[in-house]
């Protein structure tokens, strides 16, 4: 019987080890002592890694900025859970944060909406936020949910204008993850920008069906380039695969959701960057006043939530830059309308 006991205990050790390793990292970014009334506690749940060089990182960095602006970790406490692509896991994490007394719980993924609609009424004193969406569930009688989205098509349009002017072959490639949500907005806007500038250019779009399949994204970029594309763009965290291919083949790239210049300084022209800081500051102010939801936010050029970040290592020709500025201004003024 002794070997059996040994086996069971060894298995138990290994199982614990496995569980410990694969549990989502739920570490407060800033260790704080006991919560006091003056500390504003924010928790966020990410579908991908907080440092994915894309959607999640845009929110994470914004939170850090807000924290710094408001007086550091002693004033704002931030906790996050990442890689929760699995919605039930994410829902558990959201509920967990809410019950631990966080003031604002952010569900950073459009797939979390249904769960949030169920959780929010159970915690009427907690403010929730989710995106990308504009549905605050007020129609369902819920008053403690904020919603946020980005008009990704606006930056897509402006970068499309630049892409059309920089392309020599007249073939431009877009590599997207799935044909929906934020990615689709961006892709559609980009295509409109190209065709508004050079109506005869070809814009080819591929979707890989996954937010994280780096390998297939790289293959998609290779295929686009073999098909003659000399300017590429794409969306989702898996585009790092495509950027690598572009770097090897010396093909230009436009970034989306996050400043991707550092991945390949020689070929990234610019990136559309989401700046959630004003949105977050407004939300926090409302929460501190006792308003826990009901407001929807949209990042646009007009409210400076969307920014075209140029790569300092890449010199954009003056005419291209001025065309981009003109397009940006046109969108702000309403002279140019981009179909979402």
């Amino acid at each position: 019987m002794k070997p059996v006991v040994f086996r069971v205990s060894l298995l138990a050790v290994i199982a614990t080890m496995l569980l410990a390793a694969c549990a989502p990292a739920a570490a407060p970014a800033t260790p704080t002592a006991a919560a006091s009334a003056s500390v504003f506690k924010i928790a966020v749940v990410f579908p991908s890694a907080h440092n994915d060089a894309a959607f999640s990182q845009s929110m994470y960095e914004a939170l850090l900025t807000v924290q710094k602006d408001m007086g550091g970790p002693s004033k704002v406490e931030i906790a996050y859970s990442e890689n929760l692509f699995n919605v039930p896991d994410a829902a558990a994490a959201i509920r967990d944060y809410a019950s631990k007394g966080y003031n604002l719980v952010i569900a950073h993924g459009s797939q979390y909406g249904t769960s949030l609609e169920q959780i929010a009424p159970d915690f009427p004193k907690t403010a929730f936020a989710w995106g990308t969406s504009l549905d605050t569930f007020q129609e369902a009688g819920i008053n403690n949910v904020f919603a946020y989205q980005a008009d990704a098509e606006q930056g897509g349009y402006v970068q499309g204008v630049m892409a059309a002017m920089l392309s020599k072959s007249g073939v431009i490639g877009i590599t997207g993850p799935v044909e929906a949500g934020d990615a689709k907005l961006y892709v559609d806007g980009f295509k409109q920008g190209v065709l508004a500038t050079k109506p005869n250019d070809k814009v080819n779009i591929t979707y890989t069906g996954s937010f994280s399949d780096v390998s297939l994204m790289a293959a998609a970029a290779t295929t686009q380039i073999q098909n003659g594309a000399d300017v590429l763009t794409g969306s989702s965290q898996s585009v790092v695969g495509a950027i690598g291919v572009c770097k090897d083949k010396n093909v230009l790239w436009f970034g989306q959701q996050w400043d991707q210049a550092s991945l390949a300084p020689s070929i990234v022209v610019s990136s559309q960057v989401y700046d959630w800081v004003p949105t977050l500051e407004d939300m926090i102010a409302l929460v501190q006043k006792g308003v826990l939801g009901g407001k929807g936010y949209t990042l646009t050029f007009a409210n400076k939530g969307l920014v075209i970040q140029y790569n300092p290592s890449y010199t954009v020709p003056a005419d291209v830059k001025s065309a981009a500025d003109a397009a940006t201004q046109g969108i702000i003024d309403g002279k140019i309308t981009v179909q979402p």
Partner: peptide
Amino acid sequence: IDLFQENMTN
């Protein structure tokens, strides 16, 4: 691909 990303094997 020449880089590492979390869960890159997908």
